[in-house]
Amino acid sequence: MKDLIEEITGIFGPSGSEEKVRTVINKKISNYVDGIETDKLGNLIAFKKGNGEGKKIMLAAHMDQIGLLITHIDENGFLRFTKIGGVNPKRLIGQRFILANGMTGTVGVEKVDEEKEIKFDKLYLDIGASSREEAEKHVSIGDSAIYKPQFDVSGNRVISSYLDNRLGCAVLIMVLEKLKKSPHDIYFVFTVQEEVGLRGAKTAAYQINPDLALAVDVTITGDTPEAHTMDVALGNGTAIKIKDQASITHPMIKELLILTAKKHGIKHQLEVLEHGGTDAGSIHLTRGGIPSGTISLPIRYVHTPSEMADLNDIKASIELILRVLGEEI
């Protein structure tokens, strides 16, 4: 499990440039599925056939990650950038970023008097180039960059960049490896462009038109010093989402998840998230409405290069998904 998480969190794939992630996942799962294709926007859709008596289920985990978009290269070779997805400019100084070609840079800041002045137009990425010409050999405007991947294991927890949401991708891969039999037709969808507006899941759901859908994504916790008022804690099991800003879990799905977890003694917690959303937000409004929910992986320090997850929570999440897929719905 740890190896898979390390490998998959280390692949370059910010929103709109998910090719490499898609290739790796495709290779890992193609033996376990009955069909696999990439759609027009770049979603990877893998299909596993049921026994003809079940439902059509869509599982979605997004492949894309937040990062930077290079917007300007100055005479001295410094790169200016804006954000891709939810990146906080105040937390970037000194962070290392890499480009698609592996080139590393670090973020610097213009002279400012107060921290609140730190906005994207005060920051720059220094890739070690001393002139525009030199920089342009490695990078051009419109390129993107990601946090330089870092992965560590601390006790029963992993600290890594981009658990959001490669951890969700890893969970779906492990579900596929372990899934023996299900009555249902299951579509494993690795979506694109979630971080910039839940986009890939929308068009994939339109194409698949499932009876129900589950997003697998990360959520924040309220278990750190002076944290948000939130009940989710690391190590308390898989989190069943009740509500976030983009969706309210369909009561039927909520019940299905809670009852299945209880029936099989799977450690779980309920999640009410005041901000943010998952692919379920766009899936459930597709066509005439698709009952949807989210299985959340509790993570501390979301959208920083050091996100933390608990291995037992991951196992519980995998088990819950497997059990749900095994049930008659």
């Binding site: 309220g222 008022t229 939130m230 009410v272 005041e274």
Partner: peptide, 17 residues
Amino acid sequence: LMVTKIEEKGFIRFTSV
């Protein structure tokens, strides 16, 4: 409103829908 957390003493924290 929706329950977000039940405090140790039983007081209930909430958010708005």
